[in-house]
Amino acid sequence: MRTRGGILVANVIAGLALGYSVANIGFGDYAELNRMFTFQDLRMLLAFAGAVAIIVVVFAVLRVRRTPGRIHAGVIPGAILFGSGWAISGGCPAIPIVQVASGYLPALVTIAGIVVGIRLCRWANTRYFHLDSGSCQR
């Protein structure tokens, strides 16, 4: 699955599985998200932490290689902005897609905001910040 076609198929499978899982866990539901962030209900927090724990163990057993990445000057302010935006809008970059797919039409506005934010960041980074483009995505 490491050819161009294989990566395309893998992305389709990952997208379907991610969308299906995120919707069924309840990440698209603002009430559930707020209960997670305010520790009123630990179900979604445990789902996320449990997933990370499983991945850590399996990656260690399979010796999955690490990708390059360092803590550059944008990581902490970027994470603060992201966390604030997630708590306000109820969406990380995948969740508004799931919200629209579930019938929440105002989530299209969140998507519009994400589009503006991403384009603004690349423009600002090229012009002012000159930071690493990222550590996770390839």
Binding site: L81, G85, I88, S89, V109, T110, I114, S135, C136
Partner: peptide, 18 residues
């Protein structure tokens, strides 16, 4: 929603991931 989306989009790219 729009401001939250802008913060998410700008923040995730500045931090290099979501």
């Amino acid at each position: 929603l729009f401001i939250g989306g802008v913060l998410v989009g700008f923040g995730t790219r500045l931090a290099g991931g979501c």
